[in-house]
Design a protein around this nucleic acid. Sequence first.
DNA 1: CGGGCGCTTGAATGGGCTCAATTAACGTGG
DNA 2: CCACGTTAATTGAGCCCATTCAAGCGCCCG
Lengths: 229, 229
Amino acid sequence: MFANSQILTATNTVPAGLAVFPQASVVSDDDLPLEGGQVLHFAKGAEIFGQGERADCLYKVVSGWVRTYRILRDGRRQIEGFHLAGEYFGMEAGAAHRASAEALGSATILVVRRSHLNEIAARQGDVAATLFRLAVQGLQRSQEHVAMLSHKTACERVAGFLLDMAERADAGKRLDLPMSRQDMADYLSLTIETVSRTLSQLQADGLISIPQSRTIVLEDREALEDMCE
Amino acid sequence: MFANSQILTATNTVPAGLAVFPQASVVSDDDLPLEGGQVLHFAKGAEIFGQGERADCLYKVVSGWVRTYRILRDGRRQIEGFHLAGEYFGMEAGAAHRASAEALGSATILVVRRSHLNEIAARQGDVAATLFRLAVQGLQRSQEHVAMLSHKTACERVAGFLLDMAERADAGKRLDLPMSRQDMADYLSLTIETVSRTLSQLQADGLISIPQSRTIVLEDREALEDMCE
DNA sequence: CGGGCGCTTGAATGGGCTCAATTAACGTGG
DNA sequence: CCACGTTAATTGAGCCCATTCAAGCGCCCG
């Protein structure tokens, strides 16, 4: 199954036979009417689409986590975002993907053809409005990213990241992160060493504890929030 | 006229009587059918809309330059972008503006009611598609902003900024910038001193010359491009 | 001519990066 | 189950670049 998903991704086509589910299982207010979509499964680390590939689908996380990233001209990897269940990614203005997307762990993804979406949107104004709103929400997320990178210290970035992840994952005190320190560093524009050091410092100060390297317990949420100002 | 524009902005309403032109003068491929829009004039430094105000219009620069910015919780000002003739700004997913917009110099702006746009978009699929594309283009611009802020040195940021401005303003060697050093600093996430020092250094290295503080001559474009990698 | 503002320049500080070594976690195969 | 190899994560020391604090310059406008 995983192999199939990967082959599927490589060619970026969506044959009906490979769909794990015939249609989206959950429909909320935020959902587009995506009956035409197909749900695919991706193994840990599998590529969902690649930078430069033709962008003819829109994607929604059904379960699991996804990272989208770009390789910059100097070779560094900039992670644009982590995407959780219910969130959309892969929107493009042009014909090609400007980013790559990979499953962080095992993930199920709803895939919808753009041609299909356009077809629906042309008939249904609310679908078009939802697409617009999704794009603007992505824009706002990116602008928050800019605000986070601008002048903020390593401590502020890491604290803000933990709070953001906890909120979006709907976690309580205990936060299980599926991404590596390198992933965090590439998202926060820090080095892996600084991320590690900062987490250690936050633990030493009693704001968090780290029972396992990818499990963070938010011991003092208020202090973490103060840290972000 | 300027006073009127400012009062207009303060209340964020668009009475028909204040329109300078009855409709958009230029229509290109990128243009939405915005016959309902009104063109307003803003004096240097005038506020077009403010952070927190109701967002019931979409804006397009007819002439002049606009800066959009947010005041962050720590009091710093993050400039999200500079907007030139033909570019859109003021798109929001929610009911309120998350940013403020001000005319850099004297500027004319096309203002369209969102309700009017929604009305059109519901009937015309191509308008809806254009709105979506505009939003995604804004998203891409913001993601370029993230890439620029991530790890890049002051030199790389300033050089990249100059090239970006030159390209968008369709300038040759000579580039007349309407914004202050503080504006550049707040966009590039540097201090005003670092921006100034960096420009001086680029001049000393022969890559640019600065006949007046807001006029930059790109003496060695290739070297500037190499600088950004 | 003076005042104010925008811009430039200098010196010292500090936070994150680099380079380097160590430790922990995790499969894999014996 | 343990030994091993590999990768991920932590920790340390020194350095560098942007910031901070401070002073001086240039220019526009009154």
